[in-house]
Amino acid sequence: MKDAPDILLVDDNPADVGLTREVLAASTHHSNIHNVPDGEEAIAFLRRRGKYTEAIRPDLVVLDLNMPRKGGQAVLAEVKTDPGLRTIPIVVFTTSHAEKDITHSYELGANCYISKPGNLGDFFSAVQSIEEFWFGFTSLPH
């Protein structure tokens, strides 16, 4: 495995992206964060299309659900039915606590679902846990 893991952060909210970067910058995994603001760009990034021809294949996708143009669930559906991409783990990381969002995300093949905590301390712990779990304990496909 490469030295530093690559995370594709699909989120249209610069404030959340900022918080997530804050946490990851302070961690020992030195993850590279690639941020795209919506589902269409996420798919372009993963398929190396348009301005993303040089994009790196991420080790993990952290995916928001409610985004303009193409939402997170459409991205999930597309990635998880694509034999070339389906092995990339996807963490849904969203404000929604709604039962139907949780169920539907898992149905579409999400690898885990985390509701963004409202409290800063909990938000930081959540992001740390994501990184620690996927890059500290988990064996990922090459």
Binding site: N13, A15, D16, T95, K116, G118, N119, L120, G121, F123
Partner: peptide
């Protein structure tokens, strides 16, 4: 549903950044 997502999202921003 709107309350669970759309209202909480900006609220979370205010709380998180004030805390920061």
């Amino acid at each position: 549903y709107v309350a669970s997502h759309d209202l909480q999202e900006p609220l979370r921003m205010v709380a998180a950044y004030t805390q920061l």
